[in-house]
Amino acid sequence: MEDISYGGVLENIRSEWMRGQMVGLVGPNGTGKSTLLRLLAGVNRPTLGRIYILGQLNSKISPKDRAKQVAYLPQQMPENASFTVEQYVEMGRFPYRTLFGGLDKEGREAVHRAMAVLNLLPFRNARLDQISGGERQRAGVARCLAQGSPIILLDEPIANLDVHYQLDILLYLQGLAQEGHLIVIAIHHLELAARYCDRLLLLQSGRVYAEGPPQEVLSECALEEVFQVKAKTYADPFGGHLRVSYSP
């Protein structure tokens, strides 16, 4: 990202991420995390600056070609929830479909694998409006995985999920990053962000407040300035990852 701005919501965002990283976008509500993801996904175009995806200027890539490189799951749930879980996950294969074509063998395998990983096979024939919010969220993540793109952008992927699936999904995403994907997630849970992400981008009022390894970004000073909370940070005695204890 080269100095990108977007209509007063984001200003002068500059950063470079590599495949193999899991990046967390953190910051208070309304600081532009979702807007930044939308710009990266090509949903909106920056008013200033440029975004490059794997070396190509984002605005010059066709929607289908971009989708082969970048999978994006917005925060909003599907408006039409009458599709089955399997049909929804199959939609991730849209960029690979031919003019009238169905799914090829590779597509069917990708869909099956994505549903298996997120434990959705028992619900494959259930409609999206017949499953819980958490299951719908997992179906959305599965749709992204089925897309098979090296870059995955997820807006609040663990909202609505119980702790089991929160950890499960973050662990799986971390595994994908280690396999060479670039994972970018907007996330509110700071401890989980610190535990699973390699880098954090902390936003404050549309600007980058800090970026780097979680231990550096989530300093007590930053938490107080950006979130206006008093907090102590310390290393978890068992895992060594960052823990945050908020003062009343």
Binding site: R38, A41, G42, V43, S62, P63, K64, D65, R66, A67, K68, A71, Y72, L73, P74, Q76, P78, E79, N80, F83, Q87, Y88, M91, G92, F94, P95, R97, R143, C144, Q147
Partner: peptide, 21 residues
Amino acid sequence: AHALDVLSLGEEQAQGVGVPL
């Protein structure tokens, strides 16, 4: 038809999988 299926989920969802809106 496939693009319309995805589009019925919402425009952002559709853009996320590469539908040329």
